[in-house]
């Protein structure tokens, strides 16, 4: 097999691992928000639109939190990558070739 820019591919893998970790962190933050507000405010007497405070914070604000969080995640932590730059030519796929010949 040819050497297909192995260095670049290793660097890409490092970046993707980082992105996966950031994603896990946001997921964990959402979980903490969800858990802490739902059970921490479970006995709070306040109501928002009639709904108990825990519900408002955990489910409604939590959803907005998630939307803002994922936007920041994508804009600040994620990089654009050329998905086709790392292809290997050597592995043939017979079922694929059939279609290309026509």
């Amino acid at each position: 097999m040819k050497d297909y820019k192995a260095k670049d591919f290793q660097a890409l893998n490092k970046q993707l691992k980082k992105e996966a970790i950031y994603t896990c962190i946001l997921y964990a933050l959402f979980f903490i928000w969800w858990y802490a507000t739902a059970y921490g405010f479970a006995d709070a007497p306040q109501r928002v639109w009639g709904l108990p405070l825990w519900f408002f914070l955990s489910c409604i604000v939590g959803w907005l939190f998630c939307c803002v969080g994922v936007t920041l995640l994508v804009k600040c932590c994620f990089r654009d990558v050329d998905l086709d730059a790392y292809n290997i030519e050597e592995i043939p796929d017979t079922s694929e070739k059939a279609g290309d010949e026509l």
């Binding site: 950031y22 994603t23 969800w34 994922v70």
Partner: peptide, 13 residues
């Protein structure tokens, strides 16, 4: 609501 972050979690990882 547990399902809300699932989409970005899958795609992000």
């Amino acid at each position: 609501m547990i399902q809300v972050p699932t989409g970005f979690f899958t795609l992000g990882i």
